[in-house]
């Protein structure tokens, strides 16, 4: 009987949830044998039960791709119902639980990229998804709990892009508050690269010269306090090079020379203090000293 076969897949998967062939077999039993002989309500129950099974398994095996994948499959196969008037009811009920599930998973491991990917998938595909502003608030909570959570900074960059593109947030004012958030984090732990990578995202391609000047001055202040801060030096080189690359015509000859000298001095110091990446600094130094075209 297929129900025996079905139950044995449950037992096998509880022992080893990575057996992708067993998941396939289980799905085949469901779609080919069980579902054609079932009422939609029974199909919905079976899928809801599989969602609970995978939640149990994920708590033990949070990084197993095929378990996450089976959840997606379950959600995508929830039938219309419970009534003709409410065809989305079952879907909504199941999808709504997913944000709770994924938040539990991210509470256990805030860097689990499977969970973050799943979260983005849920937000993009559920009906009545919470708006991006709610997601922005979620990343704020995650970042405030731990500035080192680059996964949350990454998510924040994606959400902000959406909010800006959709005109739901004014890019300029919102960027300004991001700079304040990130500066706060920099002063808390200047060695935390998550924060500096996010800062580099805020700066972007460096088209805004006054922004570059302002941020250079602010980082310089931090460097004066923390003269060995690698990330202060690294970022200063990055932004000063951006000034040279993008805004050369607006700089005086003296200013241009000064920027070059600053970069050279910073790179020389980086090559001495960040020995692991010594050759990178020397390569950039050499490139800067090459006569520009």
């Amino acid at each position: 009987m297929s129900s025996d076969a079905f139950n044995s897949t449950t037992a096998l998967l509880r022992m080893n949830p990575e057996l992708y062939t067993v998941w396939n077999y289980r799905r085949n039993i469901m779609t080919q044998t069980m579902f054609p002989a079932s009422e939609p309500a029974e199909v919905n129950d079976a899928l809801t039960e599989d969602l609970s099974l995978t939640f149990t398994l994920l708590k033990q095996h949070p990084k197993v791709y095929v378990i996450w994948n089976h959840r997606r499959w379950c959600l995508e196969n929830v039938p219309d119902g419970p009534t003709e008037d409410d065809p989305q009811g079952w879907k909504m009920a199941n999808w709504k639980k997913e944000l709770f599930v994924v938040e539990k998973m991210l509470d256990a491991d805030a860097r689990n990229f499977h969970a973050w990917n799943y979260r983005r998938y849920i937000l993009a595909n559920m009906a009545n998804a919470p708006p991006p502003s709610t997601e922005l608030a979620y990343t704020t909570r995650k970042i405030e709990a731990n500035f080192s959570n680059f996964s949350a900074w990454h998510q924040r960059s994606k959400v902000l892009n959406t909010l800006w593109e959709e005109g739901k947030l004014d890019e300029k004012t919102s960027k300004q508050s991001e700079f304040e958030l990130v500066q706060n984090a920099m002063y808390t732990d200047p060695d935390d690269q998550s924060v500096w990578i996010y800062h580099a995202w805020l700066i972007g391609t460096g088209e805004d010269a006054s922004l570059l000047h302002r941020e250079i001055a602010s980082i310089q202040e931090l460097l004066d306090e923390q003269p060995d801060s690698k990330w202060c030096m690294e970022s200063l080189v990055r932004y000063k090079r951006l000034l040279l690359r993008k805004h050369r015509p607006s700089l005086s000859v003296v200013e241009g020379e000064q920027l070059l000298q600053d970069c050279s001095a910073l790179l020389a110091k980086l090559a001495e203090t960040d020995r692991l990446r010594r050759q990178r600094y020397l390569d950039i130094l050499q490139e800067l000293q090459r006569p520009s075209s």
């Binding site: 983005r120 996964s151 990454h154």
Partner: peptide
């Protein structure tokens, strides 16, 4: 591809 230069597993995913 992400702004940090890296790539993720699907569109929108963190660089890994």
């Amino acid at each position: 591809r992400n702004f940090d230069g890296g790539f993720g597993a699907v569109v929108g995913a963190e660089s890994h």
